[in-house]
Nucleic acid binder design. Structure first.
Lengths: 139, 139
DNA sequence: CTGCATCCAGATTGATACTG
DNA sequence: CAGTATCAATCTGGATGCAG
């Protein structure tokens, strides 16, 4: 039996996790909500700089369905909605550190340099232009 | 300063790792080469069941450029090329177990069931139809 | 303010056919 | 056997405009 069939349960589990954290904005959203535990839709949108309302909305709903984010409507004078990570959502933190550690090592492995230095400006431009600020041709 | 800017170096590191392991076939390829440490192009293609030669070729070259896979040409009577994980490629293993653990927990969290049972046949059909065998609407 | 609907562009993956 | 080239489909993310 092919390995890809025999190991399917394990690979599906890995893929499930990747599905939850893949995409252009999922990691940034999680990091924002980690650093600033409660944010409104507009605050999140400003933190994320170039995300569109449609995409932010879709991502937040996806994360809600996955129990990672809680959505709380505040009925003050003006309607606001507060988003925050659930306790379960915070279990992703350890995983993100593991991913970060490997990624930092990988930069060294591939480029021989200690870390990638990206200026604020370059990073903002990369976000706008929809280009990841990575070493061209590698990674 | 927006969180997404202030934390850019960390997020880039996470994204670097995700870029290396994301995509339909990267995880399956790594798992195949873990279970069977040396495989030819055709053997790999058979293990992966529905991958096309073009995609397999592109993925292997990408992984070679990232030092994860080594490519060795054997000049016997007939040309064969053996692929295997490098020592560096095997450093991904720990990460994959972390991803797998979270994914298994996630299934329980979302569906309330201990694990997803997918038959060989269903999994093969999903590979062919280009559909991940996941819970519809969730994950 | 908080989103949804529509339409659209670019990237990813695949099918098919062909080469050294 | 080990790929490459070309063309097509599908998927993701985005721009714009509108509504509760």
């Amino acid at each position: 039996m092919p390995v890809v069939i025999a190991c399917r349960q394990n690979m599906i589990a890995i893929q499930d996790t990747l599905d939850v954290i893949s995409g252009k904005w999922r990691i940034p959203i999680i990091v924002c909500l980690t650093m600033r535990p409660e944010l409104s839709f507009t605050e999140l949108k400003e933190e994320l700089v170039y995300i569109s309302a449609k995409v932010l909305s879709a991502e937040l709903r996806f994360m809600e369905e996955n129990n990672l984010v809680s959505r709380e409507v505040k009925k003050t004078t003006t309607l606001t909605v507060k988003y925050s990570l659930t306790a379960y959502g915070r279990t992703l933190e350890r995983l993100l550190f593991s991913l970060m550690d490997w990624g930092l090592t990988h930069r060294v492995q591939i480029t021989g340099k200690q870390a990638l230095e990206v200026s604020n400006e370059d990073y903002i431009n990369a976000l706008r232009a929809n280009l990841p600020p990575v070493v061209p041709g590698i990674v």
